[in-house]
Nucleic acid binder design. Structure first.
Lengths: 241, 241
DNA sequence: GCAACAGAAATCGGATACGATTTAAAGAAT
DNA sequence: ATTCTTTAAATCGTATCCGATTTCTGTTGC
């Protein structure tokens, strides 16, 4: 399809110069929510058309996603939605077991009552989301629990690292979808809070490792290839006709 | 700060299209080795001239450094060498204490004889570098020890996280380094190896926390402002006349 | 009929060009 | 003389353009 300058006439009607962060979020959401499947091509020009910007702004965004391991870039070929291997999925989970052990140990040492309260609040929200069949929200809150745990350490750097890992793990979980299994995370989180409340550092660390391992075991690590969808349909909600 | 005027004359004669990774390495090295001081401006055009490329390739590199917190980017103003505050320095060190505790615990569980050998090898190199008054090399190896420790876990993701943290900490140390103090890291590393060899996970974790704390305490956290140098002199070794 | 090859179309990576914004400097007024 | 205003210079962010590489397609040969 040939594009001309007359198209801008329609676009400026609803001024939409999306920021880089918004475009990034749109793409990541599209991937995590399954509107884009692993292996799908992310053409620079095509994405530029979708978001109404030039590929000049698309390219660095794709590189950022590449650093987050959400997309892969093959030189002179283009960008594609990452197809995380089973080994990679295991590696991310193992990394979380290693790093979040240190995190929960530190959190256990410094946790105050209000911190436990915040954690319990998140678990309660998780419970509600689960009851209302709000899978997406529940999924998000599951990650939020671990981020909040990192926040308890009072260390912004640690929180950032954990957030990145959780985000990456979210992608893995979304791709290796689990039909129903997710309740285990609720019990796991409650157990973690109890161990922290007890001030038992070793027990908390042990519980964390097992909790993450449970999440890993609940995944379906068989070969999974979803159908490829077009970029236009994946971002259909952005269109204005 | 004035720049050199004579540097761009003979650059077009050379045939050296450096890769993005090489340019990235050059800039980070220049910052960590002190050839560029915190607050120095990193002009896109100027850097492009230095490396013989267009600013198109410089910009994403600066953004990557920005994500690593080595440079800061102020919108519509430009990129500058990061000037980490004392709080930020403490935060990075604290993050390492938290995360590397998990790392050394995992490493202690799985370490084999060859792994210990590799660690001792690095310590030996550190010792040599210290003897030959090779401060830069010693400094680099100090970080390499921790990266190797992360590598023992067999987890690439963990290794990447640790590498980022070490790189960031290297910048802090380079900025707040006291003239002489650095020998403590040698003894600290040796002690860490001993604890790992003993298989004593708790002792290893304890030693790691104290080792990192020692490094922190050895810094001079008073206000420190180094002299600004020009980009031309900072990358003078790249010139070929 | 199928495989191999050649040319065309498409797309990526990079350089140049241009408007927008900030910074620096020069000039006028009190 | 100092300060405020205005104007010029520099630099950033983005769009457009161009060569290089890949992929697709149509043809040829066996």
């Amino acid at each position: 399809m040939k594009i001309g300058y007359d198209m801008n006439a329609e676009l400026d009607r609803e001024k939409k110069p999306l920021s880089d962060g918004q475009i990034l979020r749109e793409i990541t959401d599209a991937i995590i929510e399954g509107r884009l499947s692993p292996g799908d091509k992310l053409g620079q020009d095509e994405l530029g058309k979708v978001f109404g910007v030039s590929k000049t702004r698309i390219r660095p965004i794709l590189h950022r996603l590449n650093e987050q391991k959400i997309v892969v870039i093959e030189p002179m070929r283009g960008a594609f939605v990452a197809r995380p291997s089973v080994e990679e999925a295991r590696a991310v989970n193992a990394a979380r077991q290693i790093i979040e052990e240190g995190v929960i140990r530190a959190a256990t040492r410094v946790a105050r009552v209000k911190d436990l309260k915040a954690l319990r609040e998140i678990v309660a929200e998780e419970h509600n989301a689960r009851l209302t069949r709000n899978g997406g929200q529940a999924h998000r809150l599951t990650g939020e629990f671990h981020c909040e745990l990192a926040r308890i350490t009072g260390n912004e750097v640690v929180a950032d690292v954990v957030r990145d890992l959780v985000s990456r793990d979210n992608l893995v979980v979304a791709l290796y979808q689990r039909p129903n299994a997710a309740a285990c995370s609720l019990d796991g989180h409650a157990a973690l809070i109890d161990r922290i409340a007890e001030g038992n550092e070793d027990a908390a660390a042990h519980a964390m490792r097992h909790h993450l391992q449970d999440v890993m075991d609940s995944l379906n690590l068989g070969p999974k290839t979803g159908p490829s969808k077009s970029l236009a349909t994946a971002f259909a909600h952005l269109r204005q006709d």
